[in-house]
Computed example of a mutant assay.
Amino acid sequence: MDHDILDEAYRRLHRTGPEFEGWLSNHGPMTVEALLRHGHHRSVHRWLDDYLRRLDELPRGLRPIEDWREALGDPKRAGDWLAHFDRELRDSPWQEVLGTWWPRLLPGIAAGATHGVIRVGHAVRVLREDGPTPDRLTELGQALGYWAARWQPVPGLRLDPPPRPDGPDIVTALAGLPRIADRSGGIRERLERLRDVPGWEGAVAAPRPARTPADAERGLVTLVHRAALDYLRFGHGQAVMLVHAVTAPTAVLRTLPSIDPALWAPSLTAAWSATAAVTAVYAPPTGTPPPAVAPGTPEEVFARAARHGDAHVVKLADAVLDAHAATGDERVLAAPGYAGQLI
């Protein structure tokens, strides 16, 4: 990791807003972190020069956040939320801020098509593995602020589900998810349709809850692994959006070491709901045989993604390398190559 390039890239990006062109998420901080994490420092500023041309300015605030519950999920308060977390991270250790806000934000994991939690996961990985600097703390604040401004629950999500010892495991539950019939509109409209899908309420509550923090960690590893394999079967249905079925639970998994273990089980529940919802509203009802993708080592797989240059391809490669390291399953390494073909 070239830390000087990371901090310089963050400074350039922190003059821009968390969204652009209406409701598109700013992928810049997440993508440059992934590129640098895997040794592609020479391509960062060239990639960023092109990407910055598309971005909007940092939003202005209206008034300070006083009642945080009232302001959750209000995108008009995005500037206020960014300022709020900037102040909090100046006054308190980042671990303390994260520990306070993670359980508040977790029920709204669908925020920004799950980009709120994904951006937080990248920021936390940097702080935990590379240490804090002012620019890295600013990045965590902007990630948390974006999540708060776009806070949105998955319909039917309960972070304290009743015990279901006879419930299916995660792999079985994913295989049994229903699908929405109306595929028009964006993710906000599609998520709302889940309320009327027969069987959705039972499906989102289906997996056996984790009984211990270790169970939760194993469950997240399984969820990421299965979602990556499912991308090979369903990615043709919506190549970009189905990436988030993999990257959202990856972000939660990366955050676990920095939060109270008592929060790990509800974190798995929320991550499951995000993957399940994205699958239900974007994946086709039936899959196709896995595509032919050139094999390669993890390093080669990421290098191809970096050359492709699309933010989603890069972030998917970053996530599946984690899944491969955790499981040893080489099949997941084909997912970024397939995404590169489709996008």
Rank of each mutant, 00 (worst) to 15 (best):
Q142C: 06
R54L: 14
R150V: 01
L144F: 10
A78Y: 00
V124R: 02
G145F: 03
W94Q: 04
A113F: 03
P134R: 12
L72T: 08
I118W: 02
D67Y: 08
E139I: 06
L55I: 11
W151P: 02
H84V: 09
G121E: 08
R53C: 02
V97G: 13
T138F: 08
E57L: 11
T114N: 08
R69C: 06
D91Y: 01
R77N: 07
S92M: 09
P59F: 06
G61L: 06
D80V: 05
R136I: 11
D67P: 14
A111N: 09
D91V: 13
P132W: 07
R63H: 10
L105H: 00
R104I: 12
R60A: 14
L140M: 14
L72D: 06
V120L: 03
S92G: 00
E96M: 05
L58E: 10
E129K: 06
Q95L: 13
L137F: 05
W147P: 11
R87I: 13
R125D: 14
A143D: 08
P132K: 02
A113W: 04
W102F: 07
E66Q: 13
R104Q: 11
G145V: 06
A149K: 00
W81I: 12
D130M: 11
W147S: 07
D135T: 07
D67L: 08
V126T: 15
F85S: 12
S92A: 15
L98D: 04
D91L: 15
D56C: 05
W68A: 14
E57T: 11
A111Q: 03
S92P: 00
V120K: 01
D135N: 03
E66K: 08
P59Q: 04
T133P: 10
E96N: 00
H84L: 06
